[in-house]
Computed example of a mutant assay.
Amino acid sequence: MTLRTTAVFSAVTLALSGCGTLNTVLRDDQAATRELRKQKTYCQSIPRVYSGLAFDFCRLNAPPDYTGVLVPLVLVDLAASGIADTVVLPYTIYQQSALGNMGIYWQQRRS
């Protein structure tokens, strides 16, 4: 593999690991919302329909990231999440009607 191929493969892998749709659709609610709690988002819940986009917007709706790394990655992921959210739309519509929104801070409120 060339250095360029390795760099592209690494960037795609990094983007997919942070992909909002993968985090919210393929993982359980606690794992998905744990990521947002780590970043201290101001969002209280996210809808399941277009949850990847909501996940990314909630990552942007957090205290500033002074490293300057998070915002460009989230902006790139917004496009990918929009496409992926549209593909899984029938599933997420069903999930939304059956389960409602994903609460981000539900564990802290119960305690």
Score class of each variant (00 low, 15 high):
residue 46 I to V: 15
residue 75 L to R: 08
residue 44 Q to V: 04
residue 82 G to C: 09
residue 93 I to D: 06
residue 68 G to H: 06
residue 66 Y to N: 08
residue 86 T to Q: 13
residue 106 W to P: 00
residue 90 P to S: 05
residue 59 R to D: 00
residue 34 R to N: 09
residue 15 A to M: 15
residue 83 I to L: 14
residue 94 Y to C: 14
residue 23 N to W: 02
residue 22 L to D: 04
residue 82 G to Q: 08
residue 90 P to A: 03
residue 74 V to A: 03
residue 78 L to T: 13
residue 92 T to G: 07
residue 14 L to S: 12
residue 25 V to H: 07
residue 33 T to E: 03
residue 94 Y to Q: 15
residue 51 S to Q: 00
residue 5 T to H: 10
residue 53 L to H: 10
residue 10 S to Y: 06
residue 68 G to V: 04
residue 17 S to R: 11
residue 1 M to T: 12
residue 35 E to Y: 13
residue 33 T to I: 06
residue 47 P to M: 05
residue 34 R to L: 11
residue 7 A to P: 02
residue 44 Q to Y: 04
residue 94 Y to L: 15
residue 111 S to T: 13
residue 106 W to V: 06
residue 17 S to E: 11
residue 76 V to D: 02
residue 34 R to M: 08
residue 38 K to D: 06
residue 53 L to S: 08
residue 20 G to W: 02
residue 8 V to S: 12
residue 108 Q to M: 07
residue 80 A to M: 13
residue 84 A to G: 00
residue 40 K to H: 13
residue 23 N to R: 04
residue 99 L to C: 11
residue 22 L to Q: 05
residue 37 R to F: 00
residue 50 Y to P: 01
residue 22 L to Y: 11
residue 19 C to M: 15
residue 20 G to V: 08
residue 26 L to R: 10
residue 43 C to V: 00
residue 17 S to L: 15
residue 60 L to F: 06
residue 11 A to W: 08
residue 59 R to H: 03
residue 42 Y to T: 09
residue 103 G to A: 15
residue 60 L to S: 05
residue 111 S to Q: 14
residue 61 N to P: 01
residue 65 D to E: 07
residue 56 D to W: 01
residue 45 S to Y: 03
residue 56 D to Q: 09
residue 57 F to H: 03
residue 32 A to L: 01
residue 21 T to L: 02
residue 22 L to E: 03
residue 83 I to M: 11
residue 79 A to R: 07
residue 84 A to M: 06
residue 22 L to R: 05
residue 11 A to Y: 05
residue 19 C to K: 05
residue 7 A to L: 13
residue 42 Y to A: 12
residue 68 G to K: 05
residue 74 V to Y: 01
residue 95 Q to L: 15
residue 51 S to V: 00
residue 87 V to P: 01
residue 5 T to G: 07
residue 79 A to M: 10
residue 26 L to A: 14
residue 89 L to Q: 09
residue 20 G to K: 05
residue 93 I to Q: 10
residue 49 V to T: 10
residue 38 K to M: 05
residue 11 A to S: 10
residue 87 V to A: 09
residue 37 R to T: 02
residue 15 A to I: 13
